[in-house]
């Protein structure tokens, strides 16, 4: 039961982007299409899971006073690996995510979970906490990217599968895939979360 709780708190009750307001920069910057948002979330899932597991494994050997630099080195190792993997397999995604891939290293979600959870808990809990937080991030990203893409472009595409296409008759509101649309969409998502989901 408590393992299940470790997994689910990050998704709705403590959703990193909507409630804790961390990891905002990548969430807003790369959500102009559902596919970019999805790709970014996969990268964050990989880094968060790996860093939580490693931090949890070495937590008894790390001196307290230098733990933050050690966490940063661990995280940046995985970020570099993810950076090179995306570069090798999906050049298009790499180009549209751009500088936001190396910036995963300063994403507060990852360092925050290492410090607040993985450093104090066992490997299984830490892995589940990482997965839960990352899924919360992914859910927010895909909803945000989806809303922006549907309103701004009339489509909803993930990994070359087109789920929604409003066709020629729809006149897209371009502003939603431009920067103002990101701020506006997340404002309404936050308000909706406060009204209906917060207990």
């Amino acid at each position: 039961m408590s393992l299940w709780k470790d997994f689910t708190t990050g998704i709705i009750k403590e959703n990193p982007v909507i409630v804790l307001m961390i990891g905002l920069c990548p969430a807003l910057a790369v959500s102009s299409s559902a596919n970019d948002a999805f790709g970014m979330s996969i990268a964050v899932i990989a880094v968060l899971l790996a860093s939580n597991v490693i931090v949890s494994l070495i937590r008894h050997h790390v001196p307290d006073s230098i733990r933050i630099p050690i966490f940063i080195v661990i995280i940046s190792t995985f970020v570099t690996a993810v950076d090179y993997i995306i570069h090798a397999f999906d050049m298009e995604l790499y180009a549209s995510l751009g500088v936001f891939i190396p910036l995963i290293v300063v994403n507060c979600i990852i360092l925050g979970r290492a410090e607040a959870f993985a450093y104090k808990n066992n490997v299984l809990s830490s892995a589940l906490d990482g997965l839960g937080m990352a899924f919360g991030f992914m859910l927010t990203m895909v909803i945000l990217g989806g809303i922006r893409e549907i309103i701004g472009n009339g489509t909803f595409t993930i990994l070359n599968y087109q789920f929604i296409n409003l066709g020629q008759g729809y006149n897209p509101a371009l502003v939603f895939i431009m920067p103002p649309g990101a701020f506006l969409t997340i404002a309404f998502m936050m308000a909706a979360h406060r009204k209906w989901l917060k207990k």
């Binding site: 649309g181 990101a182 701020f183 506006l184 404002a187």
Partner: peptide
């Protein structure tokens, strides 16, 4: 301001309008 929009949501809407201006 309606209650669910107080605080952060209205700040984001403000930022959205500023972003529109900078566009």
């Amino acid at each position: 301001i309606p209650t669910p929009f107080r605080g952060h949501p209205i700040a984001f809407i403000t930022a959205s309008l500023m972003s529109l201006a900078f566009l």
